[in-house]
Amino acid sequence: MTLMSFVYGFLAILGAFVFQTSLTGINRKVTARLQKRRGPKWYQQFIDIFKAFSKSSITHGWVYDFGAIMALGGIAATVIFIPVAGFQSFPGLDNIFVISYVLAVGMLGMAMSAAGSGNPWASIGVSRALTNMLAYDIPFMVIVFTLIYQHQTGSVSELAALQQGAGIWGWNAFQLPLGGLVAVIALFGMLGKKPFDSFIAPAEIASGPMVEYGGKQLGMMFTLHELMTFIEVSLILNLFFGGGETLWVYLLKYAVLYTFTNIVSGVMPRFKIDQAVTFFYKVPLGLALVQGLLVIFGGWGY
C-alpha cells in the first residue's frame, strides 16, 4: 500500500466512470435504434450527470446526505477492488466475497439515505430492491461457491487468469454452461435491467429510492449507478468470460456483454417483485444447484 496505489485507485474510479458513462450513452442510442428512434447524443449521459450536479438541491437531514456519501464512497471503493485485465491498485484485496460485500455498503448507504428522506415511495423501492437482491444473489452465490470449490481460490483475478490461454472454450461460461447462464440472468437482476427493474419503476412508485433526489444528490446517484454497473459487469466478465488479457480486450468484451444485456432488456416487460423471486428460485437456482452438484459430486470440469 503506497501513495501510488491511491493514485491508481483514483484513476481507476475515474476511468470506470468515464468508460461506463460513455457506454451507457451509446447504449441509449442502441435502445433508441431498437425502437426506430434517432436517440440522444453519445455523450448525453455525461450531460445529464453534470447537469444534475449544476442544479440546486435539498436535504432532509444529515442521514440523507451521509447515506448518499456512504453509498457513493462505498461503491467507489469497490471499484478500486475490481481487477481490470489483471491490474489492481491494491493487490490481494480482490476476494469475491469481499467485493460482493463491500458492494453492500454502498447499497445500504443508498437505502439508508432514501429511507431517511421520509418518503414512502422510497421505502417501498428499497424494500423491493432488497427483495430483488435476495432473489438474484442466491443462485449467483451458489455458482460462485462452485467456482471456488473447483478452482480452490476465491480471488477474482486468479479466477480470471485461470480461464485465459485456452481460447474461448476456456471460459467458465462454456466450461460450466449452466452456471454461465445463471450468472448472465443474475446480471440482469444486479443491473436492475428489465424484467427485474420493479424497484425503480417510474410510473408505479415514482422511481422508488430515487424519488426525493434532486440536484447534486441525484448526480451522485447517477454516478453511483454507473460505477455499480461497472462493478457488476466486471464481476461477471472476470468470473465467467475470462476477464481480459489486455485492457483493450477487456473493454471490448465488457462493451459487448453490457450491450447484450441492454438489447435483451430493451424488449422485455417487467416482473412484479414476487414474480421475480419465484422465477429466480425456480429456474436459475435450480440450474445453479444442478451445476454445483455436477461439479462437486460428478467431477465435471476437472
Binding site: 428512434r37 434517432r38 436517440g39 440522444p40 447537469k51 417510474p202 415514482a206 422511481s207 424519488v211 441525484l218
Partner: peptide, 22 residues
C-alpha cells in the same frame, strides 16, 4: 416522446418526480 418525433434526440425525457425535473 416515441419514435415519430423522438424527443430524446434533444436530450429530453420524462421524469417521475418534481425533484428530478427541470
Amino acid at each position: 416522446m416515441t419514435s415519430r418525433f423522438d424527443m430524446e434526440q434533444l436530450g429530453m425525457g420524462p421524469m417521475a418526480t418534481p425533484r428530478q425535473a427541470d
